[in-house]
């Protein structure tokens, strides 16, 4: 299904935010929208956004490449992005990431064999006083999980699997 069929109302609201002669500004919110369902922006969505905003597909690809939250390839349905930047690392974030990956049997940056969960190390998420913490990127958009332990994280992952890909 095209974006226009799936999200007619959202697209109208996004375009209304910007002056009509600058509709290119809508590219970022449209990419966020396109990524919601599948976790990445596929070729069809890129073509559709390019046509809608009258810019080239190459320009869209360069924008996807520039910003870390856009993905052009499928990964785990749930991305767990653990902050290991300096302030969090001063409060045990590196160890948390290592322990979590150990428990899941993967390395940072990898996806579990069932294809469900990808764990990545990321830069500061503006929650430095609540380390260890991570954000999840999935079909609910982005959510913060603060003051985390490996046990609580495993519960979250189990819940995610049971609910068929919804973080509950």
């Amino acid at each position: 299904m095209s974006l226009a069929e799936k999200y007619p109302k959202e697209i109208r609201q996004i375009l209304a935010k910007y002056p009509p002669e600058h509709k290119r500004s809508a590219v970022m919110p449209l990419l966020h929208l396109a990524q919601l369902q599948e976790g990445h922006v596929d070729r069809h969505a890129m073509q559709e956004i390019a046509a809608l905003l009258e810019i080239t597909e190459t320009e869209i690809a360069s924008i996807i490449g520039f910003y870390t939250l856009y993905h052009d390839k499928p990964e785990g349905k749930l991305r767990i992005q653990v902050c290991t930047d300096l302030p969090c690392a001063l409060r045990g974030a590196d160890k948390f990431l290592a322990d979590l990956c150990g428990k899941l049997g993967i390395q940072p940056g990898e996806t579990t064999p069932d294809g469900l969960v990808t764990v990545e190390a990321v830069m500061c998420l503006a929650a430095c006083d609540k380390a260890p913490m991570f954000q999840t990127q999935g079909t609910n958009g982005i959510e913060y999980h603060e003051h985390m332990t490996v046990e609580k994280t495993m519960e979250l992952i189990d819940g995610f699997k049971k609910n068929d890909g919804e973080v509950k």
Binding site: M28, L31, I63, Y67, L69
Partner: peptide, 23 residues
């Protein structure tokens, strides 16, 4: 207007480019 993960977009002119739909 939501960015998409780039520290540099806090710099005011990079931020404006980003609202304009550019890198």
């Amino acid at each position: 207007h939501l960015g998409a993960g780039a520290y540099i977009c806090g710099e005011e002119t990079a931020l404006l480019e980003s609202i304009e739909g550019k890198r």
